[in-house]
Design a protein around this nucleic acid. Structure first.
Lengths: 348, 348
DNA sequence: TCAGGTTATGTTAGCGCTGTCATAACCGGT
DNA sequence: ACCGGTTATGACAGCGCTAACATAACCTGA
């Protein structure tokens, strides 16, 4: 069958709207000989159409090269199919891995992820959140649990599911998926002692969570009688360069031996390079433990001892939780601890 | 002439639409005692309002906690203020750096960037492009210059500015910002010779552009009389692990000395680690040259000789070109070669 | 004084979709 | 024949904005 009832009742008001050659639903509908809503259904709920109709519409879509307009669709349906993710920095692989999984999973579920790169200072976060809410995302992922009051408010009144990640809190905005930085500090301290170190150094990025770990390690160390501690603080974002710089600071401050806890594997890699360039063998007098267990950690020379975080799991759990909220299914728990694990390789 | 819409069926149906507590323009307008369009202007073209009115509206906005809806705004204005960027992988720092600058600049210009991570195979690119066009971006950045015909078509009929990056072509879809992989190959070959190497190895990721560089280096080397060449190919994404693996392949294939050209600095870092773990000094019998001059390249031990690409410039030029197109200003050139530079450090 | 400009603000009509009915066509079972 | 229940499709009224024009208020100079 071909175009049967063509022009039934075209509206007489031909407005000059076809300035842009954009193909719209109406055009596809006309080509397929159905109504606009039927085309809409062919795309969004194909199971509601008769197979025959569905086919006809699909063909019309292909023929016309129709690309749906989700601005319009989102406006009408009050669902943008957009998920926002706010991370401190795109240029930090640690987050990239989580986000990569996060995006892919959401893509499979029919959502797109829009990334916001907040830089580390929280001030920006607020601005970013505001800008992003403008797109009416169906859900949002945040990094960290510290947000300005204005930011919290913004998020709350947006009435969308929120996942906070990379940290834990008893009072999440909605859902939190992370791990316990204080506990990490304690276990790292114990690990250092266990490995026989009696003095310690820290090379930490100026980042709230890194500092929490450092403080906790330090306190535990103190409790265990280790007080010979030297610290170096470097700005974000972490890099090998800053790792080397931090090492020099440590050395300048009189650090001669002990365990160095770095707030990221990248920093640790820099520490390693700096020590090697000074012919200081690792491990030995100096041991290094990184943080993150990034992809390269097992392949440095020597392989890096570090704290493994299951970053993919963070991504996975965040997706699941968000999706559950969006579809109004119950979430098992709104506080998800993905834990951590000290991976003992050769630098400590 | 106007006021033709006579049949205003406006029946006294009080719209129960305020189900969602969303603040809209109208509400702000009412609070400020102005019309909706005035609020719109206060946000988008404040210079068109009397300072006094502007203030009043701003206050009403703050009072009500209004967050504009860009789905609606974009639909009405046919401008989403969205820019799409498609890169092979978020989890690859090489691209992240360009994108980071790209996003930040666009943010300053009032745009948001939506990232698409295509994975390397082109098939996905098409799907991704389609999905992204659905959001009606005002511009799009692509990585590479090879696109399927369908994809090209999609892009072309979207009638939006397109920048292709990381490569050069005489026939860009619209604008291209990149560098010449063939020329890099030639210069790297010359550099190897100049450094005294008479045999070569390649550790290359299975990526079109990397392979182009390798081929060009190889051909040039051949022309210059160097035929003792061994190659190792590794999958994407590059990692230290694959660098080590590639090195082992090279060694297994009988590579005993010469210059190794790696398709990325990350790979080079792996090569370095593998050689160090075998106590093979670098440079010396074996030299290494990487690609990219990533942040860590200057800080490995020993510092890595590599090919520097001005990634930030790619980002900058891409933004400028896109912005020029969007505002319908002339672009200086639609083919922008950002060049490259061999950075001689200590591994070759 | 007034035509003619220049702001500052408002009115109207959509942008391209989808939610929500309404309608139509068909299905048995009685 | 009737009924109620499905299933498939359509009509219509917005979603929350902004472009484009209309209007009002206020200049300016001859």
């Amino acid at each position: 069958m071909s175009s049967s009832g063509k022009e039934k009742k075209m509206r007489a008001k031909t407005r000059p709207s076809r300035v842009k050659g954009d193909v719209t639903l109406d055009i596809v509908a006309r080509v397929a000989g159905v109504s606009a809503i039927t085309v809409s259904r062919a795309i969004n709920k194909p199971e509601k159409l008769a197979p025959q109709t569905r086919e006809r519409v699909k063909q019309a879509i292909a023929e016309t090269g129709y690309v749906p307009n989700l601005l319009a669709g989102g406006l009408a349906s009050r669902s943008s199919k957009l998920i926002a993710a706010i991370i401190p920095s795109i240029a930090n692989l640690v987050y990239a891995e989580t986000i990569s999984l996060f995006s892919n999973r959401f893509r499979e579920a029919g959502y797109q992820v829009i990334l916001g790169d907040s830089g580390y200072p929280e001030v920006l976060e607020e601005e970013l959140v505001r800008a992003i809410l403008t797109r009416r995302p169906d859900g949002i992922l945040l990094t960290g649990v510290d947000h300005s009051p204005v930011c919290r408010n913004l998020l709350l009144s947006a009435r969308i599911p929120v996942v906070e990640t990379w940290d834990l809190t008893p009072t999440p905005l909605d859902i939190v998926v992370g791990f316990d930085h204080v506990r990490i500090g304690r276990e790292v301290a114990a690990f250092m002692i266990e490995k026989g170190y009696r003095s310690a150094g820290f090379v930490s990025a100026d980042d709230a969570r890194a500092l929490t770990r450092q403080r906790s390690t330090q306190e535990t160390l103190n409790k265990l009688g280790v007080t010979d501690i030297v610290t170096a603080s470097v700005p974000v974002p972490s890099s090998m360069e800053l790792g080397r710089l931090g090492t020099r600071q440590l050395l300048d401050k009189g650090f001669t031996g002990g365990a160095i806890f770095c707030s990221s594997d990248t920093l640790a890699q820099g520490v390693l390079a700096e020590l090697q360039s000074r012919n200081i063998g690792v491990p030995g007098k100096i041991g290094i433990i990184g943080f993150g267990d990034q992809v390269f950690a097992a392949f440095t020379h020597p392989p890096l001892t570090t704290v493994r975080i299951d970053r993919k799991r963070i991504g996975r759990e965040a997706v699941d939780a968000l999706l559950a909220r969006i579809t109004e299914q119950p979430v098992k728990s709104n506080i998800i601890d993905v834990g951590f694990e000290i991976i003992s390789r050769q630098t400590m």
